[in-house]
């Protein structure tokens, strides 16, 4: 049975998207990404160092864009204009690649999304031909607005970026999943494998994470665990879990044919 993730008309075998920040070195980045099975990797766009380290190793050498789908982000942008500029630079840098991750942050303390600026940037980017996957609050109405603006995926936070606090509001996430037709991916907040499994059990189409893997004591092993967690969660969702019944406990073994109780 094929169960691929479909984003903007393209299919991906893995529902796990991995960030490439905070690793010890590019070798560890590469090893973790490979262990995760992820096909889509996020990258940031930053000023190049001028006049120093001309032969500095490059992320593009460690993770060749021919093998992985790059998802350039707008991390660190606090308004729509900066986010749009950043992604235009990314498109130029990546030879016209137009699948992007939009995030417009509200403040450096929480990294919570600034939704009015996010919506403004989303509209501009879609008009400019970008395929926008968008980091957003877990508000179903905002998610619908982003979908209406033409975003190809909405990516609500499960908890604050880099916090590892897991899914704080599964009910809201459920509302977002119910309300929008484009893929819903949890972006931010996953701390360990069970968080990722829970996101998938709720019906998310995928999970994007970085710190949960990069900040694990053994990032490569955690990447492997995340791969399994996503697969397990997805299969549990597709299988359809049993209903929760607080008061009707029912034994799994037959109630008939039990041996006779011994006379006292």
């Amino acid at each position: 049975m094929s169960d691929n993730l479909l984003i903007a008309g393209k299919t991906y075998g893995s529902r796990l998207l991995i960030g490439t920040g905070k690793y010890k070195d590019f070798a560890e980045t590469r090893a973790a990404v490979e262990a995760s099975g992820a096909e889509i990797v996020t990258v940031a766009i930053r000023r190049t160092n001028i006049g120093q380290n001309a032969n500095e190793p490059s992320l593009l050498d460690a993770l060749p864009p021919s093998k992985f789908t790059y998802l350039p982000n707008t991390a660190g942008c606090y308004n729509a204009a900066d986010a749009v500029r950043t992604l235009r630079l990314a498109r130029e840098l990546l030879d016209g690649h137009d699948l992007v991750k939009l995030e417009v942050l509200g403040d450096p303390h929480t990294l919570y999304p600034n939704m009015p600026e996010t919506l403004k940037a989303a509209g501009e980017l879609v008009r400019d031909g970008f395929k926008v996957m968008v980091y957003c609050s877990d508000d179903p109405i905002q998610a619908q607005m982003l979908e209406a603006a033409g975003c190809v995926a909405v990516m609500p936070l499960a908890s604050l970026i880099g916090s590892g606090m897991g899914i704080l509001n599964p009910w809201n996430l459920q509302l977002v999943i119910d309300k929008v037709k484009v893929p819903v991916l949890v972006d931010a907040g996953v701390g360990t494998a069970s968080d990722a499994a829970l996101a998938m059990e709720l019906g998310c189409d995928g999970v994007l994470m970085n710190t949960a893997v990069a900040a694990a004591r053994n990032p490569v092993l955690m990447a492997k665990a995340m791969k399994k967690a996503l697969e397990a969660g997805r299969e549990a969702f597709l299988a359809g879990r049993m209903p929760k019944k607080l008061y009707s406990a029912a034994p799994s073994s037959p109630t008939e044919g039990k041996i006779a109780p011994r006379a006292a």
Binding site: G19, G21, F26, A44, L59, P72, L89, N210
Partner: peptide, 24 residues
């Protein structure tokens, strides 16, 4: 990229030169 050779930088211009780096 195709216009790098014929785009002339003038006094007062502001340039940004960027690369892809690790990030979430």
């Amino acid at each position: 990229r195709g216009l790098h050779a014929r785009t002339v930088i003038e006094d007062g211009d502001q340039l940004e030169i960027v690369v892809a780096v690790g990030g979430g």
